[in-house]
């Protein structure tokens, strides 16, 4: 059984988005957190920020690397996972669940068509999952 939920969509920059009606919940993938190693800090946008697909939304830091997080879809930030600032290690523990980053109100649902399915993403990151 795959660790990548079938109902999520993925980007080649290793973000995922779960779209429910006009809301998208965004996170980084299991593969991304494993490449980064121990995550020590998460920098997220403020509520109300409008982000554009493919543009930086925030960043995650491990001890020796910083990675930008790119918005998988465009929209307005309507919720931010505040728990991550106190416990960034959650991103290593549960990247597809409790460690979601932000929720967006989508302003162009059509964009979802450009994203990868779970199967495509699995193929993209290769056998190691």
């Amino acid at each position: 059984m795959s660790i990548y939920p079938e109902n999520y969509l993925y980007t080649k920059d290793h973000e995922w988005v779960l779209i429910q009606n006009d809301t998208g919940t965004v996170g980084i993938t299991y593969h991304a957190q494993r490449e980064l190693g121990d995550i020590v800090f998460v920098d997220l946008p403020k509520l109300g920020t409008v982000v554009e697909q493919g543009k930086p939304l925030g960043s995650v830091e491990s001890v020796k690397a910083v990675s930008d997080i790119y918005a998988p879809v465009s929209g307005e930030v309507i919720a931010v996972n505040e728990a991550l600032s106190a416990a960034p290690e959650k991103l290593n523990q549960d990247p597809h669940g409790a460690a979601w980053l932000v929720k967006l109100r989508l302003n162009n649902p059509e964009e979802a068509k450009s994203l990868l399915s779970a199967a495509d993403y699995r193929a993209y990151v290769g056998a190691e999952g």
Partner: peptide
Amino acid sequence: LATREQHIRREK
């Protein structure tokens, strides 16, 4: 907090 520094964040 080395991620603030040049050897990690380079031009940023």
